[in-house]
């Protein structure tokens, strides 16, 4: 879902660069509270895993594919602020090292995939936390649902950006229909990958699943 440069006009690209910078700055400030000697390495590995899995485009229709975005996955495992930073790092490395995703488009790409997708996925996960605490099936269902919503919200981000400042004058309804239709399918893949990943981590190290924090014995508080 990495857009190239040139799809949005320059002023709107700049506006989203500013929005992304403010959002990432906010996440940087808020992330501290969720990072300690145990969760910091975990967060690094979550970012790394998202980068790796994003390389794997899976087929959804003849002639079309999709890949993980990872916002909900990251938010469930390491919290929304650290999660947003994980996806941001991935997008920056992809744009600068692999020429994947435009440079002036980076603000819009970060806004869609790292900020609003992650936030939406996390809000769904928190709303369904009681279900997630019921066991493996519940956690899988919550991970799937939040990842599916994450994908659709991120896709909607592009629709909104194109409506505000898209180049080419294509009717927005056409763009929206294609984006939502394709991403409803991609969201199923996102949901499955997220469910498998989150339940695998929970099976080995439930203490490293941010969403489940507090559902077990309280963590030791060090002064």
């Amino acid at each position: 879902m990495h857009m190239s440069d040139g799809l949005l006009n320059a002023p709107v690209s700049v506006v989203f660069l500013v929005i992304a910078a403010v959002g990432v700055g906010f996440a940087l400030v808020k992330a501290r509270a969720d990072l300690d000697d145990r969760t910091a390495p975990m967060a690094g590995l979550v970012a790394t895993f998202i980068f790796a899995v994003q390389m794997i485009n899976f087929p959804i229709l003849p002639g079309a594919s999709g890949h993980l975005l990872g916002g909900a996955l990251a938010a469930i495992l390491v919290g929304p602020y650290v999660g947003a930073l994980c996806v941001t790092i991935v997008l920056v490395v992809q744009a600068l090292l692999f020429a994947d995703g435009g440079l002036t488009a980076l603000g819009a790409n970060v806004t869609n995939m790292a900020l609003i997708g992650t936030a939406a996925g996390f809000l769904v996960a928190v709303a369904l936390r009681k279900v997630a605490e019921r066991g493996k099936g519940g956690l899988a269902a919550v991970a799937f649902t939040s990842a599916f919503v994450n994908t659709l919200v991120a896709a909607t981000g592009f629709v909104v950006e194109y409506a505000i400042g898209g180049v080419g004058g294509v009717e927005i309804g056409k763009v929206a229909l294609l984006m939502w239709g394709l991403h409803a399918l991609i969201g199923i893949g996102e949901g499955l990958i997220t469910a498998v990943t989150v339940t695998s981590v929970a099976a080995i190290r439930p203490d490293l699943v941010h969403l489940l924090k507090g559902s077990r014995k309280p963590l030791e508080v060090r002064s």
Binding site: M55, G63, A64
Partner: peptide, 19 residues
């Protein structure tokens, strides 16, 4: 083994001519 087909956004911008 990754698919080489365009992803959802690329497919959208290709099919609409935005690309």
């Amino acid at each position: 083994f990754a698919s080489g087909d365009p992803d959802g956004l690329d497919k959208t911008v290709e099919d609409t001519g935005i690309a």
